[in-house]
Amino acid sequence: MSSRIEIEITSEIDDQQYTWRALGAREPKGTIKKSLLPAKIKIGDEFRVEADFLIDGIEILRVLPKRDERKGQETIEILGSRNENYGVTTQLVKKKRNKKNSRSRKNQKQNTQKTSKDQRPKRDAAKKPRQSRSPQRGKRLKAKRSHRNSVIDNLPDLHKPLAREVLSRGIPNLRKTLNNMELPQGFDVEILQYAEKINKQLKTAEWRDRADAVLKSAKDIDLRDFRSVVAAGGQWANSDELSSIQSQLETSLRERIDFEHQQWLSEIKKAIEDGKSVRALNLSSHPPKPGTPLPENLMGPLVDLANNSLDSDTGSHRWSVVVQAVAFSPIRLKVTPKGIPERISDELVATIKKLSDRIPNISGLFTDSLKQTTD
């Protein structure tokens, strides 16, 4: 689509062309055919033109006629009757009210508001969002945008809007926008190819920003973010410099996981020694490296602690909490309770019924209670 701009003639190249620039600015600039200009022109003349903004530059299509200069604004003077004596005057008088009636109306209004307020249904207390069972290991990643902004700044001025469009909306939305525009045949294909090239540069720069942030805080960053950056490096680390950064990330990740693993084992050991069965069970189900088995020297004491926590002296609510922790721990098939509560609550039955597939040894002790709920 063509646009209208104002230009200034800056120099004459030859008998066929002149150079121009945008009026009052250094850019944009380009060349214009002499055949499009009036017969007598000189350097510094200003024109309004219709132009096409292309990837390779700006093409002037035609010169528009100059606007007629306005000599001045035409105004109409309103004289009026010149009579400043107004024939009618008005004055608002406050209406007097009976104090007794107004007081009774006020009391009646207050009683009505109080009654309607009491009749309003009470809103349920806002439920707290359910927290993830997985413990957070470190602070979340907050990367800067220096490399990404550098890519945009190094592009020509005419291409920067396209880069921002790709960055904010993506290639699919850009394709839809181009389909709705009336463009010459094949023109949208060239734009999309160039946009995909810019998109690849932007994605690589974003990964570089994230990688720099991870390397800067390798000991504190959350392991989930750490792993995601390392995994994405296989796609975006496509140069020698970026491959070197990827190697540093992989080495730092291995060191971090080893450190977290030792800390994980020490926390489980301390929880077992302190008799905190639920904490020890929850920790055992979330190793720093998924799939890491629990060492034998901790598995035995943890099983004994869980068995002792599930006995006849333990209340139903506590039983339910411990059972949930056991169901997601690596020792779920090895736990054998020492007894069942004397009073089995509906909450405990519902918990065991929900997790029965994961804890068959425990659910077998509540066969009668589970049958009653089924019936």
Rank of each mutant, 00 (worst) to 15 (best):
S3T: 00
R4L: 06
I5Y: 08
E12L: 08
Q16L: 07
Y18V: 00
T19F: 00
W20H: 02
W20G: 01
R26H: 01
K34A: 15
K42E: 12
F47G: 08
V49L: 12
D52G: 02
I55P: 10
I60A: 09
R62Q: 14
L64H: 07
P65M: 09
D68M: 08
K71G: 11
G72Y: 11
I76V: 15
G80A: 11
E84N: 11
T89F: 10
Q91Y: 05
K94H: 07
S102T: 07
R105K: 13
Q108H: 09
Q108C: 03
K109V: 01
N111I: 03
K117F: 11
P121Q: 13
K122T: 12
D124W: 02
A126V: 09
K127Q: 14
P129T: 01
Q131V: 10
R133C: 04
R137H: 03
K139E: 15
K142H: 12
K144R: 14
K144F: 12
H147I: 00
H147F: 10
S150C: 07
V151I: 15
I152A: 14
L155D: 05
L155I: 03
L158Y: 04
L162E: 11
R164H: 13
S168A: 12
S168W: 02
I171D: 10
T177Q: 15
L178M: 08
M181F: 01
E182P: 00
I191K: 02
A195V: 01
A195P: 06
K197E: 10
L202Q: 07
L202W: 04
A205Q: 06
R208E: 13
D209R: 09
R210L: 06
V214S: 13
V214D: 12
K219W: 02
K219F: 04
R227C: 05
R227V: 14
G234Q: 06
S239V: 06
D240K: 11
D240Y: 01
T251C: 04
S252D: 05
I257F: 12
D258C: 07
E260I: 03
H261W: 08
Q262G: 15
W264T: 02
L265C: 02
K269P: 03
K269V: 03
K270P: 02
E273V: 09
D274G: 09
D274H: 09
V278C: 05
A280V: 00
L283A: 14
L283D: 09
S284G: 07
S285E: 03
S285F: 04
P287A: 14
P288I: 10
P293C: 07
P293S: 13
P295Q: 06
P295H: 08
E296H: 06
N297Q: 08
M299F: 00
P301G: 09
L302E: 07
L305M: 14
N307W: 01
N307A: 04
N308Y: 03
D311K: 12
D313A: 13
T314M: 13
G315T: 10
V323R: 07
V323W: 03
Q324V: 04
A327S: 15
F328P: 02
F328Q: 08
S329F: 02
P330L: 02
R332G: 00
K334D: 08
P337F: 11
G339M: 03
I340Q: 11
I340S: 13
E342P: 00
I344W: 04
A350Y: 04
A350S: 13
K354M: 07
D357N: 08
D357W: 00
I362E: 08
S363M: 03
L370W: 05
Q372K: 14
D375L: 08
D375T: 06
